[in-house]
Amino acid sequence: MKNRLRVLRAERGWSQADLAERLDVSRQSVNAIETGKFDPSLPLAFKLARLFETTIEGIFSDEIQG
């Protein structure tokens, strides 16, 4: 799954560790989601959407990450 997490994070000047802390997950989790190696559950996707004040579709798209 393709996502804009890196872009959204960079816009706010957050590191992976900053985002991980806000989500209450490990930095490795953020990295795995960002690189498309791990797809988050719906609750975590909602948490991300709320954090970035957007929709889930605003972060994730069902294209395969290249």
Binding site: S26, Q28, S29, I33, F38, P40
Partner: peptide, 8 residues
């Protein structure tokens, strides 16, 4: 474990 990636 609340971190779903770690759990997976």
């Amino acid at each position: 474990e609340t971190d779903e990636y770690e759990r997976a």
